[in-house]
Write a protein that binds this DNA or RNA. Sequence first.
DNA 1: TTGAATGAAAA
DNA 2: TTTTCATTCAA
Length: 515
Amino acid sequence: MTSTTVVHRRGHQQSEDSIGIEAIAHFNARESTEQFPEFHDDAKDLGQYQDGYMPYGDSPSYLHNPPTPRSNTASEGVRTRSGRSTRGRTDSPFSNGRISKSPAARTKKEKKSKLDRSKTPKLTAPLSILTKDLTVPCKDMDAWVHRSAETRRAEVEKRNGYVTRPMNSFMLYRSCYAERTKAWCVQNNHQVVSSVSGESWPMEPQEVRAQFEEWARVERENHAKAHPEYKFSPSKSGKRRKGEMSDDEGDDVSEIDPHADPDGDYRGAGGRNTRQRRALQQQQQQLAQHVPMNDVMGFSSNPYYAQQTMPGYDQSQYQYVHAGRPLPSNVAFDANGVPFNTDTNTYIPQAMYQHPQVQDFHGMRAPTPQQQQQQTIGGYGLPGGQQMMAEESFAVSSRTGTPSMHQYSNAYSQQQPIYQQQYTSSSNHGQQQQQHRQSFSQYVQPTMDAAMVEHQQWLVDAAQPQPAIDPGLEEYAHFENAMGDMNGLEFIQDSTSPMDGRGMPSAWSNGESLQ
DNA sequence: TTGAATGAAAA
DNA sequence: TTTTCATTCAA
């Protein structure tokens, strides 16, 4: 059975994709869910194109070569390490600035998200925010992409000579937040990480994505330097195209399957040369020092972060949920409002979160964006590229009149560009800045509350056993007899005291320790 | 999971 | 020829 994915032209339902976001979009949701299907694809491409492209478009200082936008890649002759630029197809010399909509401009492909969404939390905000206060660190991607050629070659050695592809922006992003995502989801499942990352990625503010795209560019570059001869050559093992005959050549080229665990740290393939491996591990450990993302990238200058230091915001949230911010997904609260992990039935260690910036309540001095930037980006001792990037992003965002339709069906994103504009443009005027910040807070406030409610609801739902059928329904009563104890729902109702409830629904028994 | 790149079908 | 599409593969 070939796993053919039928291409439904009609955007019959993007639900699977954007539904997570949709759930958040209290603002848009009410209107029509219909608007998405048709516009989704186009809007996506356009939006992405702009978003991905513009931050670099004007970049005077950093490589003239913008990273490729999205689907329509390589519009600028991207120099791939393969030497041969992508001029095979999309790189038509003609398509100057124009995305040709030709014959059957189709959605690239229906994606089959094979992940059971019920096991993953719906994101109400990007991971950079949701996991902001987790003590679990982000990976230091800057150090990662700047690995020396020696290190890179050593890695290859470790893989029996297999040269892996450089990570693209999303993979870097995913990697950066993997641990945090696991912590937040309280699951150690790479599929969940992928899914959550994928949902979060389009919600990330431009600065963040631009930063990862920049890192991806650096990664490609350094990868090329380390492996000049490398050329991506995917195996053709896949099924043939339409009319292709299926005859010979079914040879699978892949004899080396260097990877197995998609998520984790690579575990040595051949396990040879222990000494070398060990040295490498040390190297890697040094390189992969963990540094909080906010500090690394100055993301705290982002409105998202700024807003979380708002007294009003924190206060209300703090009152609402004791942690004062979105919590990991498998969190529920006991009768006293103390958070505990529904997965393990244990209380959540305090260390899991920084405590809300209570000091901000009183002192309430959120650093200005400039301060943040200088502290974080400038102080990080980078080649300066990042600082540029940040500035560019701001500049760009200020001329981005319209947020891309697709990616933001939620209130955050729709507001963000607008706010950024004000936020940035007023950076020289303390008063205005204050004012804007305030207004942003006011605007976002209800959103965040809604998000919290949403999340709370999710937590509650998630904490329930999975029986998919509301016991309250009469219909269920009928089925109950018919189905008997088939589902073994016995333990359901002892939710009175969640703490002593032994059996957790299988859905939560993801097992797998957190390393 | 997204994105970069490939090879081949389709226009 | 150029554009579109299905695939592979990075973790």
